[in-house]
Computed example of a mutant assay.
Amino acid sequence: MSGRGGPGGFAERIGAQVEDADDGGARIAFEVGEEHLNPAGTLHGGVLATLVDTAMGQAVRTTTGEGEVPATSQLTVTYLRPGKPGALTVTARLRTRGAHLTVCEADVEQDGEALAHAVATFALLER
């Protein structure tokens, strides 16, 4: 899948847009608005977790066969600095693919600075 579009589900509902997804990688664009902020006025960590999970899921889907469905089984997000209103980008890539588990990484950047780094394991389920 290459090209721009919504990822579907919750991530699309909050405004995530898939810019590219191909060959074990994916890139998501997101515009942080006031509705995405926590009481401290910074980007809510749950929004970031949703974005990295979605980007990594999109990356995994570029390598799955017919009937394989990736399901997040582990997600670790390291928050490096607070996000603010404005554009950000999430870039995800496969690190290792096994018969039943796949490991991915994702990085979030805003204004040329790293906001978060994530690692996830996806189980490959049969439909």
Rank of each mutant, 00 (worst) to 15 (best):
Q74G: 02
R27S: 04
T96I: 15
G57M: 08
V119I: 15
P7R: 07
D53G: 03
F122C: 00
T102A: 02
S2T: 15
G3D: 13
I14P: 00
H117G: 01
E66S: 03
P39E: 14
E105F: 08
A26Q: 14
L75I: 11
A21D: 13
I28N: 07
H117K: 14
G24A: 05
V52E: 04
A40F: 12
R61L: 04
T91A: 06
M56A: 01
Q17W: 07
L43I: 06
G86F: 07
T121Y: 10
T64K: 03
G86D: 07
G67R: 15
T121E: 11
R27V: 14
A11N: 05
I14N: 00
T64N: 02
G15N: 01
P39C: 08
G65F: 05
L124K: 04
T102P: 01
T54D: 02
A106Q: 03
V18M: 02
V108W: 07
A114R: 15
V47S: 03
I28K: 08
T102D: 05
D53V: 13
A116T: 09
V52S: 01
H44M: 15
D22N: 08
P85Y: 10
L94E: 09
F30S: 01
Y79S: 00
E126H: 15
A40Y: 10
R97D: 08
E34W: 06
C104F: 07
A92R: 05
V47W: 09
L88C: 04
E12L: 02
V52I: 06
R95M: 11
P85Q: 12
E109P: 02
L124V: 06
A99P: 06
R127W: 10
L101W: 13
Q17T: 14
A118R: 04
V52P: 00
G5V: 09
L37H: 05
M1P: 05
S2C: 09
G67P: 04
A55T: 10
Q110M: 06
Q110N: 07
L75A: 02
R61W: 15
T64M: 03
A11S: 06
A99I: 12
L75H: 04
A116K: 12
E68T: 15
L48N: 07
T63P: 00
V69Q: 04
F122W: 04
G9E: 08
E34K: 08
S2I: 14
A71K: 13
K84C: 07
G67E: 10
V60R: 01
F122T: 09
P82W: 13
D111K: 10
A16Y: 05
A116F: 14
L88A: 03
P85K: 09
A120Q: 12
G67F: 10
V18R: 04
E126Y: 07
T50N: 05
F30N: 02
G46A: 09
A16L: 05
A87L: 14
R61M: 08
G45S: 06
T78I: 11
R4L: 01
S73E: 15
I14Q: 00
D22W: 10
E105S: 06
H100A: 08
E66I: 11
A99L: 12
L43G: 00
F10D: 06
T72Y: 05
T63D: 01
G5D: 15
A87M: 10
D20G: 07
E19N: 06
P85H: 11
F10P: 00
Q58C: 07
A120M: 12
T63L: 01
H100Q: 09
E113N: 09
F30K: 03
A120D: 12
